[in-house]
């Protein structure tokens, strides 16, 4: 039972922290219809920036904001490459992802892993520390992750209801419509990529603070993981129209982490982890396509019956 609770703790905690990233990718992939691969670089960017700042004695909450801003800058570069220099979306992402590897090395002063063991983080000081020192113990991390994820989710949902948010959704839905409204869709794309990558970096920042270390190579496979979460979330909850895309992305990520943890517990060697991540993504992609085809067939059948 204790083992089970321990695993549940890990799944929920990591699911929600990575869930922030899933929401970021939801913005770029679902709302903006842009397959953004710079995520693999902006996730460790957030982690490394957080570790470097905390090592330098910066307040861990301020570090969160700086990391978000750093992610925004990375996203804006991807956006500029695509919008201003007309480089394809995939290529812009790959270019930024690759360049960010060097940036991350500069941030960590050429260290592959930057440890912030026993330094103040949002989990060890303030509210987090208070909860950790109470009877909650490690559940305090889950609650902290939950609080941050929910705050981000609410802010994001509120943003999507503003005029700017509405326009962002319109860009993903029909670019020509946005042009007809006298607005430049390129600028909105850059804003969307900034928000998306900002959230991804924030996710990396929170994870680094929880694990008390940042790994410059932790970005590999993040895009695959986040995309899979978004697709799984939609496949599982897509029918119930009540759930928002942001909620679906986070729950998708929790389900995804659950599958990974289960596989590890069943004795899968960690070297197969990335292969498993790709495998799950393929299943999610094919599954959601089959599901869409089936529902499309049902619509046609229903129409024929009329």
């Amino acid at each position: 039972m204790d083992i089970f609770l321990g695993l549940l703790q890990v799944v929920l905690r990591e699911g929600m922290i990575y869930g922030i990233m899933a929401m970021g990718v939801y913005i770029t992939y679902k709302v903006l219809n842009f397959a953004d691969l710079s995520v693999d670089g902006s996730f460790p960017l957030g982690a490394c920036t957080a570790a470097a700042l905390i090592t330098a004695g910066v307040d861990p909450w301020i570090a969160c904001f700086v990391c978000f801003a750093a992610g925004c800058i990375a996203g804006s570069v991807t956006g500029m490459l695509h919008v201003k220099l007309h480089i394809s979306d995939l290529m812009s992402g790959i270019l930024v992802q690759t360049a960010l590897y060097s940036v991350n090395m500069v941030v960590t002063s050429k260290k592959a892993v930057l440890s912030i063991f026993n330094m103040p983080t949002i989990f060890s000081t303030g509210l987090g520390g208070m909860m950790y020192n109470s009877a909650l113990d490690q559940w305090a991390w889950v609650i902290m992750a939950l609080i941050i994820t929910i705050v981000v989710k609410i802010l994001l949902d509120l943003y999507l209801k503003t005029r700017s948010g509405l326009l962002l959704r319109a860009v993903g839905s029909n670019e020509r419509f946005v042009v007809s409204q006298g607005k430049d869709p390129g600028n909105m794309k850059i804003i969307g990529l900034m928000i998306g990558n900002g959230l991804v970096a924030l996710s990396g920042c929170v994870l680094a603070q929880q694990k008390e270390s940042a790994d410059a190579s932790s970005g590999t496979g993040m895009v695959v993981m986040a995309l899979a979460a978004v697709i799984i979330g939609e496949a599982v909850f897509g029918r119930t129209k009540k759930l928002r895309g942001t909620t679906m992305a986070v729950t998708g990520m929790i389900i995804y982490r659950c599958c990974l943890t289960a596989a590890m517990q069943l004795g899968l060697d960690t070297i197969y982890l990335k292969a498993l991540m790709s495998g799950l993504f393929i299943i999610a992609l094919v599954g959601s396509r089959l599901k869409n085809e089936r529902s499309a067939r049902n619509v046609i059948r229903a129409a024929e019956r009329k």
């Binding site: 209801k161 503003t162 005029r163 700017s164 419509f177």
Partner: peptide, 16 residues
């Protein structure tokens, strides 16, 4: 709502 705001600013005002 988007068409209604054409020519106006698209910032953080309530969308609808």
């Amino acid at each position: 709502a988007l068409a209604d705001n054409k020519g106006g600013s698209f910032l953080l005002q309530r969308g609808i």
